[in-house]
Amino acid sequence: MSFDDAYQALTDHDDDARWAYGTGFTDPLAGVPSEVPPEVDAADLASYCLMLGDDALILSHRLQEWVTRAPELEDELALANIALDLLGQARLLLTRAGQVLECSEDDLAFRRDTTDFRNVCLAERADGDFAALIARLFVLVSWRLAAFDRLTGSRDAMLAAIAAKGVKELTYHRDYAAQWVVRLGDGTALSHDRMATAISAVMPATAELFETHPVEERLAATGVAVDPASLRHEFNAVLSEVLTAARLWPVPFAAGTATYPPGRHRGSGGRDGLHTAGLTGVLVEMQSVARAVPGGVW
């Protein structure tokens, strides 16, 4: 192999796809019908896609904050990989919402304000340590996998296709998080305490995951969405299995026991645009460059 030939090889663009892992240069939904099914309210469908899309976008952002801070190189790769998968899911869901709302994924990500976001508040929470990250990731992706599993049968073909792609990714994410819950729960006295504290801190906020929003109720009735209340049984089963293996079961209160931030009550959370200050911080950061350069193209 000569010096020049080696450079030549680099300019061979035929196999780019192989080196473009996760960057979404091909449209995974090519050929999937995008018409909103009859008797489905298009505005409801858009709202629902924003709920699921914003969950993924904001959780991905919190994972991106861990880049260069992971405890081991293998986890650096895994966390970036999960962040990338969730970002991919967010892009597809925001694009679907944008088809109805006549705007782009970037308009939705970078031009909305805090109260326009529809993610659950747990997605926007910052993580104090690795156990807190793992606890939050574990409950959020376990919930999401249960939801996506049902959504593969959605009457909206686009949502069904997005869910089918997501199920494979989320299965890995849940497995990754569950393994760390077990390692930390079983590992040392210190890690056991930290994992137990993290699970206790995250459980009250899971209540919001199982509250049925009117949009979800209407769309579930037409076979488009899943009623989150119906996911509780599967979620609890996964939780008890993993936490038992981690020597962390039972948790000191029932899963999903609701406690609400001051001024909030049942049915008035992230799905309605009521967020913690954490989300405002996320958005200031996420939208800073996009908003600083009016008319910019990237």
């Binding site: 880049v67 970078f110 996420m286």
Partner: peptide, 14 residues
Amino acid sequence: TRAPTLRRKAILLA
């Protein structure tokens, strides 16, 4: 975390 489009964010993260 500050990339100005979601596509650029995905490329940079990857």
